[in-house]
Amino acid sequence: MTDPREPDDALDDAEETASPAAALAAIKASQETVRQQTRPSAPAMFAVWGVAFLVAYTALYLGWSEEAQTPQGASMLVLAVCVVGAMVFTGVHIGRRTRGIRGTSARVGAMYGWAWCLCFLFAMVIFGAVGAAGAPPIAMSILTNAVSLLIVSALYMAGGAIWQEWRMFALGAWFAVIGSVAAIVAPPAGYLVQAIAGGGGFLVGAVAARVIERWRSA
């Protein structure tokens, strides 16, 4: 532990907590503070991913080529920038909030992070193999989109179960619905479904999470 002792050590035991009500208020305030400072902010993450979804899928919709049956040109670059940008934000944000916290939750978080990474690597392999087997471009467009959303949906629901975060679970369930709709509708209209309902879902989630946080700390 850090020594040396400082002059303010002397006054500690003199400061008794005033009343049961004041002590309970102090407990609530301390726990709210530690929660806010050491746990990732759901509103911030939902908002960033909401904007990323909205921009990326709108770009894919606008960049759709009837001839090639796939999005083209700058739209793929926009998608890459949105996904990488949101991933970097997520990594930095979680890293900052959980700095100095060791033990169970760090291990759980690491496993969860690796699950995302490995699932998307697995998906890339599937896309490569299906493409190599001669799937037509429209089928590839539907597949890449649907499998990506399947991973997001499943891992959001799993995250909701791990951290008992019903908002996260609800978003995952919502992605299962809109992912199915987008697959049935097929691109390019399917992209529009994901931009509006997917990005919108995240943004609604962000607002709901913000409202709940305010209400909780009030």
Partner: peptide, 23 residues
């Protein structure tokens, strides 16, 4: 039941069980 220690204990109890925090 001492103001400062109550805050320390409440804060530590606010972490997930099985977690440690760097000083």
């Amino acid at each position: 039941h001492v103001q400062a220690r109550l805050r320390v204990v409440a804060t530590l109890a606010g972490l997930a069980s099985g977690d440690q925090i760097v000083f």
